[in-house]
Amino acid sequence: MADSQTMDRNVCSNLRSMKIGVQGSFYPAPAGMSKGDITEWQIRRLAAMGCTVHQIGFGFLSEDTNKLLELKALTDSLGIELELTVPGAFGVSGPYADAEEKSRFLKAIQNASLFGMPVVRTGYGRLNVKTSRFNKSFSVREHLDSLVPSLREAGKITADAGMALAVENHCDFTGRELVYLFDTTDLANVGAALDTANGFTVFCDPHDDIEALAPYTFTTHIKDMAIVDMPLRGYIPMTAQGCTLGEGHVNLSRTIDLLVRHSPCAKGLHLLIEPGWMAWDPNRNRLEQEYEYFEKGIQYMKDLLEAKVKEAENSL
């Protein structure tokens, strides 16, 4: 009984510590704003909405160290933790080694260190067949094995910087295939950046991905997608389409249950909201719809975590 109560207390603590934010590349900024200014504008706007984490792309960081330090001071003052997308992790060494990619990776890790980020994220798949499980030139297992040397080296570089390296299931492999990659790489600081809906893109039930990757998850993309009838005759009769959180076929409540109990980073876990492949209403202003999507998503996640905390408290 005591062990059960301790577990429930840990669940409550972990739920309260989880950080809600957004994938900044999709959060629209005013026209004409420079990339450096976009990041600061987003951080201020999202902090006002109660967010405590923000994901930024490598290209949205200034090359001026003083500017980076100013940005760090701002995030510290607003209580916002940053997560950086680092390019080039799969070009560090091995069969896909690329000097330019490695240079970008090293620079990104250097910048992330400046901010004291606990985790950085990357991805292999680049939204095409070649960088996915459907590349017919070799088997899925051979494909995964070919990624190990670079991921292992990238993981060691990241570990030396005191960070975890999270690999997104980025429209490339199923969750269980990525589990094989992580187990083969065999580094404690290399795990998953769980995208809750990308499983649809490799014709996998995303709930299977979530179950498989929860014990490896260092960070997330919280995404929902709905299966809808395909309107174009001659295509596969159903397809996945982005939607507001809670309105699709991803069980986000169950996702949080799994993550809070199995993620090695459950305490302070980043819950980063990202839209799927959306079908915006052509009769409404696109920008208004995008802002509305994020506002609803942030509130949805706040309400979900609050409900989970109450549920856990009632079990004590």
Rank of each mutant, 00 (worst) to 15 (best):
Q55H: 14
G57I: 05
T85C: 11
K67M: 08
P87V: 05
A89D: 01
Q55F: 01
K107L: 11
N66K: 14
Q55N: 13
S62V: 06
T52Y: 01
F60W: 11
L68V: 05
K72M: 01
K72S: 07
T52N: 07
S113L: 09
L84T: 13
L69Q: 12
H54Q: 11
G94K: 06
Q110Y: 12
I109E: 02
Q110L: 05
L68F: 06
V92I: 12
G59T: 13
L82D: 10
H54N: 09
E100T: 11
S77A: 10
I109M: 07
F58K: 10
A108C: 13
V92C: 09
T75V: 14
E101L: 14
D76E: 14
I56V: 14
F60H: 12
A108L: 04
L84H: 10
Y96N: 09
I56G: 04
V86K: 03
S62L: 06
Q55C: 09
K102R: 15
T65S: 07
L114D: 13
R104D: 09
L74R: 02
L68G: 10
L78H: 03
F105V: 07
E63S: 15
N111Y: 12
A99E: 15
R104W: 01
L61G: 11
F105L: 05
P87I: 06
F90I: 01
L68Q: 15
T75D: 03
A108T: 09
G116R: 06
L74H: 03
L68T: 08
E83A: 10
G59E: 14
G116L: 10
A97G: 03
N66W: 04
L71V: 08
T65I: 15
L114S: 12
G91F: 01
A73P: 02
H54R: 04
G94W: 02
C51M: 10
I80A: 04
F60A: 12
C51V: 08
E83R: 13
F60I: 00
F115E: 03
P95T: 09
F105Y: 09
L114W: 11
A108Y: 04
L69G: 09
E70S: 13
K72N: 08
L82K: 08
I109P: 03
S62I: 02
G88Y: 00
V86N: 03
A112Q: 13
L71Y: 06
K72F: 06
S113V: 05
P87H: 01
T75K: 10
R104A: 10
S77C: 03
E81D: 13
I56E: 05
A89Q: 00
A97H: 07
V53Y: 08
L84Q: 13
T65C: 05
G94F: 03
Q55V: 04
S103Y: 00
L71M: 14
V92K: 02
T75A: 09
K67F: 02
S103G: 01
E81F: 06
I80G: 04
Q55I: 00
L74D: 01
N111V: 02
E70Q: 14
I80H: 03
R104K: 15
S103N: 01
V53M: 14
P95G: 06
G57Y: 15
A99F: 03
S62T: 06
Y96S: 07
R104T: 08
I56P: 02
K102H: 10
V53G: 08
